[in-house]
C-alpha cells in the first residue's frame, strides 16, 4: 500500500519542508519567539511525525527511520552537535506508537499525546545540552522560560494545523 501511494514521496518532502520551516520561523519571528523571559521553540518537524503516526492507518510508513534522518539533519545543520535529536525524534515516534495503541487517536487525544511528546523532546534536549555544557540554565529556569512557552506555542500550532495536515495526509494516501 505504502509503496504505491503518494505518501512515499510526499511524506519525506513534507518532513524536509517542516524541518526548514522551523528554522525560518525562528529566524523571521526571532524578536517575538526568543525573549529572555519566554523562549518559544517551534517543533513543526515533531508535529509532522506525530501526525504521520496518527493518520497513517494501514499504510505503514517507516516513520522511525525518517525521524532518525530528520534528527541527523537537525543535528548537523542546525545545532552542530551530532547525536542528540537523531535519537530523540525516533523516540518520540516510538512513544506515540505506544500511546496510540492504548488511546484511539482523535483531535483531543492527539493534543494530549503531542503535549507529552513535546515535553519529552524538550526535556531530553535540555538534559543532553546540560551534559555537554552547551547551556548552564537551571532546571527551574528551563521549566518556566523554555518548556512552558514552547508547549504553549506548539499546542497552538497543533490546534491550527491539525485539520490542514490531516487533509494533506488524506490527499497523499
Amino acid at each position: 500500500m505504502y509503496r504505491l501511494s503518494k505518501l512515499r514521496f510526499g511524506f519525506p518532502i513534507g518532513l524536509l519542508l517542516m524541518l526548514f520551516l522551523d528554522g525560518s520561523i525562528s529566524q523571521i519571528f526571532s524578536t517575538h519567539l526568543f525573549r529572555p523571559s519566554a523562549i518559544m521553540v517551534s517543533h513543526l518537524v515533531v508535529l509532522w511525525l506525530i501526525a504521520a503516526v496518527l493518520f497513517e492507518d494501514q499504510y505503514d510508513i517507516p516513520i522511525a527511520r525518517w525521524a532518525a534522518a530528520a534528527g541527523a539533519i537537525f543535528d548537523l545543520y542546525y545545532t552542530g552537535i551530532f547525536g542528540v535529536y537523531v535519537f530523540i525524534f525516533p523516540l518520540a515516534v516510538y512513544l506515540t506508537r505506544l500511546m496510540v495503541a492504548y488511546i484511539s487517536p482523535n483531535f483531543l487525544s492527539g493534543l494530549l499525546i503531542y503535549f507529552i511528546d513535546i515535553t519529552m523532546v524538550e526535556a531530553l534536549g535540555y538534559l543532553a545540552s546540560r551534559m555537554v555544557h552547551l547551556t548552564s540554565m537551571a532546571g527551574s529556569t528551563f521549566l518556566v522560560t523554555t518548556l512552558g512557552p514552547t508547549l504553549a506555542l506548539n499546542l497552538a500550532l497543533f490546534v491550527v494545523l491539525y485539520f490542514p495536515i490531516r487533509w494533506v495526509y488524506n490527499w497523499l494516501k
Binding site: G23, I39, T79, T135
Partner: peptide, 15 residues
C-alpha cells in the same frame, strides 16, 4: 545574508 536560525532555546546560532 542570514538563511535561518537554530530552533533552540540555548544555542543562539544563525546560518
Amino acid at each position: 545574508a542570514v538563511i535561518t536560525r537554530t530552533p533552540s532555546s540555548w544555542q543562539n546560532q544563525v546560518v
